[in-house]
Design a protein around this nucleic acid. Structure first.
Lengths: 145, 145
DNA sequence: TATTGTTATACTCTATAACTATA
DNA sequence: TATAGTTATAGAGTATAACAATA
């Protein structure tokens, strides 16, 4: 494909993103968890958080949007959410063992689906693609997003 | 980066997509056109359409959502939109010369911004990345999206 | 009866403002 | 006074339903 005639980068990336999200939706439904619920589990698996505001910022969400998600995850005993003894305004957030196990199961399913999708690429191209994605995803400091 | 520790594909792609859209927003604003307006100009540049439904389908939008967009583009004389003499229910859609010129100017600005973004990749990786994106974006027939 | 375009309406998602409790 | 969490409200974006014109 001549580079000049390709579709806009934004259009291609967003289109692929919607395709991936559509692929993930039934997996999440099977595990009875929302997209935001999964995002929260993933974030807390990477590191526990000291406040809900910090969690919201780290996943690019509004703090008010998180509350219903956290309520549900806590109700199902997938996360810990307890007042910080040192500052009782804050809520210490982390995964419970059950939350960690559920996240691992969901992620395994999603990884399998990703492999199906990426099977359209040759092995070397797949590696290059993922590496490029990681680079573009993480802009160098000093260039505000 | 070990493949097992990378972020989910969907998260990376959607994050990059939002980054690109944020990059495009000021460009579109400078040309006084909405995101959907630009999408419509792009689609009609690729090929004229016989109905608004066909246009809506081709860009993944709802037909009702298009109407305000088409009203505005027509008001600014950027598109043609006339009843098909052979079937007066349908509206023949296409770019005017002014619409074609505006699309070309906007696309040039967007391409320039894309180059800045892609400059984070080595030349060979950039080529591979764009080719991979085009492949993943266009799933083989028989695999419904 | 089916289809195109349109309008009006409802729904979903998200952000904003206001409140409480702590500091 | 400032911040964390929460609730209530408003807004944007989108989809659904109903309609008129045409086939």
């Amino acid at each position: 494909m001549p580079a000049q005639d390709r579709a806009d980068l934004g259009a291609m990336v967003m289109h692929l993103g919607r395709r991936i999200l559509a692929m993930e939706r039934p997996i999440l439904a099977r595990h009875d968890i929302s997209m935001w619920g999964y995002v929260v589990l993933s974030a807390l698996r990477d590191q526990p958080m000291r406040t809900q505001v910090a969690l919201a910022t780290s996943i690019g969400a509004d703090k008010t949007r998180l509350i219903a998600v956290l309520d549900e995850l806590q109700r199902r005993a997938l996360i810990r959410r307890e007042p910080d003894p040192a500052d009782r305004r804050a809520r210490l957030l982390g995964l419970t063992p059950a939350g960690r196990r559920l996240h691992q199961r969901i992620r395994a399913d999603i990884r399998a689906a990703e492999q199906d999708l990426l099977a359209a690429l040759a092995e070397a191209d797949r590696t290059t693609f993922l590496a490029a994605l990681a680079i573009l995803d993480d802009p160098p400091p000093g260039q505000p997003e």
